[in-house]
């Protein structure tokens, strides 16, 4: 409990934490609004024939906003190695597993709060923008609403996605210790598969890669229509991402426990 209190105080007393959380919510909402505003029904032969997944479209800003979650997760521990405070942390709480668990809890809570704000703002922006672009109830696109089961799942899943990305980053930061290296590694892991799939000509390989990659699998949870055409189911995809996060945290925990501080 004292480790949790200490980690919360540590996170709370750095200005960068608040900037990153604001960036996470703000960039998610702003990028989502920008993408949503750029899509309309004019490309479809008939507005009613547009199969656009509007909830997914409105939430797409998270692909950019997640960078703030990566940086926050890595810095929660990497910042301690960079400044040397890790020695004081481990001297005060010699049970190293408790330190990592406490960091995971406070990072998850902070990202969940900021992520929720970003997701709600994205949906509100989508609700305002979409009808003007032809996505009206009359054309088969009812206003985005959390009362709709699939949209609620996409919204909650997006928050969970951000939390898992932050935890993956925390694990990577603990294992790698060098913040710049850890941030680069996590961003590469998240982005490299989307790039590779574009290069892979074979659609069967594309699908395989999308099932295995943390970002494409994790974001399957945002789909609200044509679920049968997804490479992986919404919650199965979230499970893949959770596996990455768990593996990174386990690697961080093992190294933290075994290594000299």
């Amino acid at each position: 409990m004292s480790a949790l209190h200490a980690e919360w105080t540590k996170l709370r007393t750095l200005p960068s934490t608040w900037w990153l959380l604001a960036a996470l919510a703000g960039i998610t909402a702003a990028a989502g609004a920008a993408v949503t505003g750029a899509v309309d029904t004019s490309a479809c032969p008939d507005p009613a024939a547009c199969r656009e997944d509007t909830a997914k479209l409105a939430l797409s800003g998270v692909q950019i906003g997640q960078v703030a979650a990566v940086v926050l997760g890595v810095l929660a521990v990497g910042g301690e190695y960079a400044t040397g405070t890790i020695a004081a942390t481990l001297a005060a709480v010699p049970r190293r597993g408790a330190v990592l668990a406490a960091k995971a809890a406070v990072v998850a809570a902070a990202v969940a709060a900021a992520g929720s704000a970003g997701v709600l703002a994205s949906l509100a922006a989508g609700r305002g923008i979409l009808p003007g672009n032809g996505f009206t109830a009359a054309n088969g696109h009812p206003p985005l609403s959390l009362l709709d089961g699939a949209t609620a799942r996409a919204a909650a899943g997006t928050v969970l996605y951000l939390v898992l990305v932050a935890l993956l980053s925390l694990g990577a930061g603990t294992a790698v210790r060098e913040p710049a290296a850890a941030i680069t590694a996590v961003l590469a892991l998240l982005w490299i598969v989307p790039v590779l799939t574009r290069l892979a000509g074979d659609p069967r390989w594309q699908e395989r890669l999308e099932r295995l990659a943390p970002m494409t699998a994790g974001l399957a949870v945002q789909a609200t229509r044509d679920l049968d055409r997804l490479p992986i189911g919404p919650w199965a995809g979230m499970g893949v991402l959770a596996g990455y996060a768990a593996a990174a945290l386990a690697a961080g925990w093992i190294l933290l426990a075994a290594r000299d501080a």
Binding site: S2, A3, H5, A6, T13, A88, T89, A92
Partner: peptide
């Protein structure tokens, strides 16, 4: 002061 505070929390 915040540096000392988190340490104090960690040490109960």
């Amino acid at each position: 002061r915040d540096h000392l505070r988190w340490l104090a929390h960690a040490g109960g």
